[in-house]
Amino acid sequence: MSGIEKYQTMIMVKNLDYRYPNGTVALKGISLKINKGELVGIMGKNGAGKTTLIRTLNGLIKPTRGEIFINNENTNLKSIAQLSRNIGLIFQNPSHQLFANSVEDEIKFSLKNLDMSKEELQNKVNKVLKEFDLEKYRERSPLNLSGGESKKLAIASIVCRDVGILVFDEPTLGQDAREIESFINLINEERKKNKTIIIITHNIEFTYDYIPRTILMSDGQIIADGPTHHILSNDLLVNKSSLVLPQAQQISLALQDSGFKNTEKITTKNELISYITQILTNNPISEED
């Protein structure tokens, strides 16, 4: 990958406003730039405008004012079907999109409009089923899958379209630890393909550990945009977004309050573990204690 390609602007939003037909202002003066291959998290309290923002990206709702450029093309001039070739939006609830007779047909439906030959289509379906470990459910009705499997299928049915931008709305909601781990593996795989990924989430630990850039929203505006570790360590910003600091940060503050020194350097779980190990090595706890 050349340097130029790496920093190519994939999404450019300029002075975006959106007002719902009932008069509610959902987005106010949003401007942002996301480069190709970036992994970005969008956080904020409920009603902050996160979902509205991502719906404007693939044309599901048209901005009241402002412009969005995807790969240098103005979205106002494109239909949702055209935009869906570039952006895949994965919704919170998988049952909103699963309808086919079998898991295989569900994937086929997503590929239907991509001008593929029958053979290409079947090969692609086989590849996707294998990649997502859904081969064993090939003939099963999507309606009989478990929650985690349906979510996996919903993601597979978007990812299979090889879109350049993947947008996930609350992907970790209701997922167990193993499912979250498998989602992280998927994200890593897609990043290797230089996909641009946007994730809306309330899961601060997940964001802190895996997402390098975070956009914080409040009342339809972006209140912070930058490296995740800087933004999510800011008590004020975190409180304003109805979030709580990551556990490592909370423990570091508690240690500081109890008189321990140099705790401000602790930002991650590993740093916290090594700090505590150091304290315990210097002041071993005797069995009598």
Binding site: A81, S84, L89, F91, N93, H96, Q97, N113
Partner: peptide, 30 residues
């Protein structure tokens, strides 16, 4: 549901009555 299906390339406007009826399945079943 309409938004979720449109996000994966679903198009409402297809020619022919039978195609239009078939086209309702991705919306009605969910």
């Amino acid at each position: 549901i309409i938004d979720a299906q449109q996000s994966r390339g679903y198009e409402m406007q297809e020619k022919g009555l039978i195609n239009q009826i078939k086209n309702l399945f991705p919306l009605l079943i969910p």
